[in-house]
Design a protein around this nucleic acid. Structure first.
Lengths: 345, 345
DNA sequence: CTGAAAGCGCTTACAG
DNA sequence: CTGAAAGCGCTTACAG
């Protein structure tokens, strides 16, 4: 009884059931603001007409009429599925999808904004497009403060995966608790007898690096040790390791992508890891790099970050928005003992 | 100049530019049916107002009014990003996303239909939901003829990744040319002197298996050889290999997931691959299984299948729909020489 | 308990 | 070249 070529509308259903279109809508939307009740008899007739016609709501019309779209956007600052290299987004998306399925929302991937690699949303002039969705999860390696500012200003529900600082106001995010995890790693090294513990950063300025750095400094200071940080050292020349040795350093914390190079550099210098130098890795790298090393340190809860980010967006859409729940969430990292850290000799 | 809380509409733009809302729409939709032209001057003003207001079309309204949403759905019959195992969808999605970016459309992942694993769309009663999008790419391991039938009947633009047969009518798809590839593999084996060449299927009934089977039978018959097919053999007991040996079989074509087991079974039986038995694999498995074997056979063009599927959907949306382009596309597989096939001894 | 009517933001004939 | 108006299929006050 479905009409070919044309979808059944509420009007069709109404006609068949001998009621008004309004009534059909009421039957479907149970909790009308007016709390109106349709008589059981009429409801029955409507339901039957719906079955007969194969009616299914037109989501565009619903949305236009002020309803929800049940669509949450996913904006990534780079293509999600790159041909080559990097599963940066993959584990995050796993978590997002899982949560989406559980929450009954669809995910709109903003793939249309071509050439978006590393550009801010604002600069592409397509911020408005996000509104197709009820809210949006943002993913990107870098920080885009201007986008955060704009979205906050527009009062559009969103959440970033990873901590991000907005120029003003509080940007919602689901982050990894790098600070706590780093602190725990330092404390473990201290327990193992280390005193000269340094931090080696890949780069600086990014929120995630800042968090680790803060955790490191806090833990060192709390123990009465001197924090020493090296930013983006040149590991190719042996000079850096000479410096470490000269200073009597016995343990190093390293951000993920520098861990393997540092270890190689140490070994090239004739040092044994972990006997001569303990190395703790602050987070697993984006993609397995083939090296078969049992790293000490911690893992990034990527899956949970994705799931939480979506939950944070959804929270902003529900009535209890004002009431409950922090819009900035930090998720504990998983500490791993590993084999690259040992008691001080 | 963006209003907080409310999105700019064409009416807002019109007001600011001092023109009618219709004119704004005209400026945006270039090729109005009436071929009407807006004066360069007015167009300029409108464009400026658009920039100032940060206007971006409301896709729901566009869709409702009969326009396009620039959203293409992606419906997968299982979660795309499973926690464990299987990158079945990943390479397909890479291709789809790439094509989407190139074509300027967004991808709507229908994640909301929870518990969709292996269920037909029809049975979940949410076929209508697909209409949020202009069209839809469907992905799934299995076949769902009832869905194809329904979508064809509704005249909804879609394409399946992989060949699928509809109960009646022609379902659009982007498939791998398994038949041709299998034929080429047989011909190579024949060139190498093999005569007793068998086909070993994982299972049967699926379109992709049928295609390989057809290619095998055609190639064998064309060469005057006798096609012999084994469906879902028990490789654990040695009996199967005894059968092959007894029959003087020197080469076997195997669907992807059975390749490794067959090779192991042969080796367990004291046979050397490829000296005693050549094995050609008909397609790479969904995920690398760790085995370090240089398989002879062919690879499935997953990336291209994804990209083509999207293109096929888009083709149905353009004016030249009736005119040009086949909606059923087969993409050549990549033949790989490999090391599991050798001349007959 | 039920319906007529306005309005969501667009596109597209139809008039000027 | 430009605009007033209808209509897409819904939701939701507002009247009965």
């Amino acid at each position: 009884m479905v009409v070919k070529g044309r979808r059944a509308t509420q009007a069709d259903v109404a006609r068949l059931a001998g009621v008004s279109q309004t009534t059909v809508s009421m039957v479907l939307n149970g909790t009308g603001a007016a709390q109106r009740r349709v008589s059981a008899e009429v409801r029955e007739r409507v339901l039957e007409a719906i079955a007969v016609t194969g009616y299914s709501a037109n989501p565009s019309a619903q949305l236009l009429a002020g309803g929800r779209s049940s669509i949450i956007g996913v904006y990534t600052y780079e293509p999600v599925f790159p041909h080559s290299g990097g599963d940066f987004y993959y584990p995050f998306l796993e978590g997002i999808e899982d949560e989406a399925e559980r929450s009954g929302v669809d995910l709109l991937m903003f793939t249309s904004m071509s050439g978006r690699s590393g550009k801010s949303l604002l600069s592409t002039g397509r911020v408005g497009r996000l509104r197709v969705a009820d809210g949006c999860v943002l993913l990107g390696r870098r920080s885009y403060p201007e986008d955060l500012a704009e979205l906050l200003r527009q009062d559009f529900p969103f959440a970033f995966v990873g901590r991000r600082e907005a120029p003003e106001g509080q940007a919602p995010y689901a982050a990894a608790a790098y600070g706590e995890a780093t602190r725990a790693v330092v404390e473990r090294l201290v327990d193992l007898g280390h005193e000269r513990i340094v931090l080696v950063n890949e780069f600086t300025g990014h929120e995630s690096i800042e968090d680790r750095s803060r955790g490191y400094r806090e833990a060192m200071t709390a123990t009465g040790l001197q924090p020493v940080t090296f930013d983006a050292p040149d590991l190719e020349s042996g000079a850096f390791l000479d410096t470490l040795q000269g200073a009597g350093v016995t343990a190093a914390l390293v951000t993920s992508d520098l861990a393997a190079p540092l270890r190689r550099a140490a070994m090239a210098r004739g040092l044994d890891v972990p006997r001569d130098l303990s190395i703790a890795r602050l987070g697993d790298p984006e993609r397995p790099n083939g090296e078969d090393v049992d790293w000490s340190g911690f893992l990034i809860p990527r899956w949970e970050m994705g799931a939480h980010a979506l939950r944070i967006v959804l929270r902003q859409l529900t009535a209890d928005a004002a009431a409950g729940g922090d819009l900035q969430v930090s998720i504990p990292c998983t500490l791993v003992p590993g084999a690259t850290v040992a008691p001080r000799q």
